[in-house]
Design a protein around this nucleic acid. Sequence first.
DNA 1: CAGACATAGTTCGGAACCGCAAGTATTGTG
DNA 2: CACAATACTTGCGGTTCCGAACTATGTCTG
Lengths: 191, 191
Amino acid sequence: MSGHHTIAETEKAVQAKLGAVPLHREQMAAVSNIHRAATAIRQHLENSVLRTSDLTWTGFVVLWVVWIWGEMETRYVAEEAGISKGTLTGVAKTLQSRGLLERMGHPTDGRLAVLRLTPEGEELMADLFPKFNEEEVFVSDPLESSEAQSLAEMLRRMVTHLEANGEQRRLDLRGDTPLPPRRSGRRAKHG
Amino acid sequence: MSGHHTIAETEKAVQAKLGAVPLHREQMAAVSNIHRAATAIRQHLENSVLRTSDLTWTGFVVLWVVWIWGEMETRYVAEEAGISKGTLTGVAKTLQSRGLLERMGHPTDGRLAVLRLTPEGEELMADLFPKFNEEEVFVSDPLESSEAQSLAEMLRRMVTHLEANGEQRRLDLRGDTPLPPRRSGRRAKHG
DNA sequence: CAGACATAGTTCGGAACCGCAAGTATTGTG
DNA sequence: CACAATACTTGCGGTTCCGAACTATGTCTG
């Protein structure tokens, strides 16, 4: 890596740029470091263990979710993987085409689709996940065991809080005015 | 949100699935919660403050980096934003087309390009960033001030560690065998 | 100073990704 | 049985994303 600016230098530059503005710096640093860490970790994993299996991050996450939970309805897979249903359809297709994942209709509710790993998928994950976990250990190297626990616990609280209160907060924020549509997207059929 | 499984339930399912396999659970929980939190926070911000300005996450991050540092060479912008140079070219184009960012050649080194916010870009960030920061406070609500500091500090250590040792680690991991090429990507001109 | 090498940025192929609209199929309900 | 609700897919338009190839420029060396 050997970046131009260290994370500490960046925080200093923020201080300089925003010295006069009243901000909540601790929360800012916490949130931005979450994203910095997530990006750095993801890149490390993509360029090591995932690359050797030709998996993208998202592909791996989807496999992981299905692996952990066994058979799972697609709507929940998308939610757990943090992607939209539409994206999942595409990602699942890719994984199916590689013989790692299979799709079945739900036995009693015909609207549902269920995902499951193929034997090849199971085998891949059984082989891959220990390697993945080794890299999780590597990236956590600077943390004491108790720190790792505390880190996980704090993040868990944030996620839980967002799951419980995020939607209401977004509603409150926009008040009356509905969210503007995205710049892109499918248009209505006629004006 | 109201997901099918809470983060605690997921961790329990992992325990059930992997109970027999010797794994490093603390690090696993830490890393996976970093990504869960990052995804949840990003989605919250995209669907609230960023949406009202029609900015994507990446677009905002690029603007933020340039805003904090003032004029900045593109290679450093990409690195700080956590995206590749190629991606930055496209993102910068989008932001230029909206009149938020401008591009200049470097005065002495003809290979370099420098980015800077336009007055409109400066105005947008001056208005937007406080709102963004308010949401950072919201998502950090479950954390004590000292906890937020501790969280940021632990993540900073992880990032620093990866920047210092990630590349060597990846080299060690693959040993002799070079990384396989990505499935996608530009091909050589002739076979 | 020519040729080799290094560096910075752009282009391009392929894939992922979102949000929305519309379409298909199925289930639940009055 | 009409009709609403639900679940997934498909397709659109746009963005993002990587990484290798390519272009342009700078630097080093004989």
